[in-house]
Design a protein around this nucleic acid. Structure first.
Length: 409
DNA sequence: CGTCCACAGGAATGACGGGCGG
DNA sequence: CCGCCCGTCATTCCTGTGGACG
């Protein structure tokens, strides 16, 4: 009857009741109509920018909060409403949203800003000062109140210093017909340590702090979104509760909560289940974590992979740095790669530890020195799955460590 | 109680590659 | 387009150190 084994797959997919109504709603760049539990922040931000409707410059604002606390969403929400209000009142207001992780140099920031006000600049070739001047002149002649949102501003500061902010906070002194306001958004609460105090004080004329969501608030958010994203009755309340609890445990990250929900839906869909339950969410958590690890593993440098492989091959649960270095040495010979020094090796271990791919702990063994006890944090099957694809590393998966002469026991 | 192991991890420096600015 | 500068990776040299052993 069936011509093709795929027919079953496709037919099933089409015939069974769809879980998802609109997948887009669960993506983190989706901007919902309401932002539950952020009413205070919305009002505060709204009140702060409101003066532009009467053609007055608004204060610079600094927004703090960890990832997934709704900073970006609130900023975009308020500004888009402001824009339509401004049209209504005929106020000359413009705003520009920039993500500094993408627009990550002084030049690119000014170039984007210029483009936003209709001044065309080449994407390279000019000096920063030149672009700055063109932006300044263009802005002044446009006679607008210009609000710029610098999202993830911490990445820009940490990479390039606060020079650009200094320029931007002082630009108003040289403008006669236009005014500029800055909304800075930072994930890092300690950002002011990196800033010149003068820059910081003029940048944070107003400050808004976004507290992490608690489990209850996350549950409400997920509930709202699930009504839009899933069909009626295709997700259980307890699944939502679990997802909120898991995300709340991880610094109240709404982004993570939404990811959990989306992946849980995909898991259920693939199983052909009609309703999303707790187990799907737990499975989703595992799957997200696994993907994170697999991604991390794939992107490691050759030597970091060799380090992990050494830990993997030396099946001891508490190997010391020295033991692993010896084995790593053997693997390098095997591949004909020149080996790194033990000093460098040590920092690779620390990096892998920070990524959660290893567990390394300094211990003292008294008379027998001071070292790190290292064990793998990644399940052996994942390491195998990832490394088997690489034909150089794949053949080392069955390498048997030489029992070295100094193997004392 | 001092010694001394087996490293940890900081500082300075070099090699390299890629983007910026002229 | 080319030189310069800067960030990253790696090496060299170094000082520091918790605690079992004698």
């Amino acid at each position: 009857m069936k011509q093709n084994l795929l027919d079953d797959v496709f037919d099933n997919f089409v015939r069974t009741k769809q879980l998802f109504k609109d997948r887009e709603v669960l993506r983190h760049d989706y901007l919902p109509n309401t932002l539950p539990h952020r009413e205070d922040q919305i009002k505060l931000l709204g009140a702060t920018v409101a003066p532009v409707l009467k053609n007055a410059r608004c204060s610079n604002i600094f927004i703090y909060g960890k990832t997934g606390t709704g900073k970006t969403a609130v900023a975009k929400y308020v500004l888009s409403h402001l824009e339509s209000k401004a049209k209504e009142y005929g106020a000359s207001v413009k705003f520009c949203y920039l993500n500094c992780r993408i627009t990550n140099s002084e030049y690119r920031v000014f170039a984007s800003l210029s483009q936003n006000i209709g001044v065309l600049v080449p994407f390279t070739g000019l000096s920063v000062g030149e672009v700055y001047d063109r932006f300044r002149l263009g802005l002044d002649s446009s006679k607008t109140l210009f609000i710029i949102v610098l999202d993830e501003i911490d990445s820009l500061i940490k990479n390039r210093g606060d020079g650009i902010l200094y320029e931007l906070t002082r630009i108003n002194e040289t403008l006669s017909k236009s005014k500029l306001s800055i909304i800075g958004i930072s994930n890092d609460l300690r950002l002011k340590d990196f800033l010149d105090p003068r820059v910081f004080s003029s940048l944070s004329e107003e400050e808004i702090v976004f507290r992490p969501y608690n489990a209850n608030e996350l549950r409400n958010i997920l509930f709202e979104r699930s009504k839009l994203s899933f069909n009626e009755g295709s997700i259980s309340d307890s699944a939502i509760s679990i997802a909120s609890a898991l995300a709340a445990a991880e610094h109240g990250d709404a982004r993570r909560a939404l990811d959990l929900l989306r992946v849980a839906g995909e898991v259920a869909e693939r199983n052909g289940d009609k309703i999303i339950i707790d187990d799907h969410v737990r499975e989703a958590e595992k799957r997200i974590e696994q993907n994170r690890i697999i991604d991390a593993l794939k992107n490691l440098t050759l030597h970091s992979k060799l380090v992990l492989l050494s830990v993997y091959l030396l099946k001891k649960s508490n190997a010391t740095t020295g033991e692993i270095y010896d084995l790593y040495n053997e693997l390098c010979n095997e591949l004909g790669v020149c080996l790194l020094t033990q000093r460098r090796f040590g920092t690779l271990i620390s990096e892998l530890d920070a990524m959660g791919l290893l567990n390394a702990k300094v211990v003292s063994m008294g008379r027998y020195g001071r070292t790190k006890k290292i064990r793998s944090d990644v399940s052996r099957s994942i390491i195998k799955d990832v490394f088997i694809i690489d034909n150089r590393l794949g053949q080392l998966l069955d390498y048997k460590p030489k029992s070295t002469s100094k193997d004392k026991k």
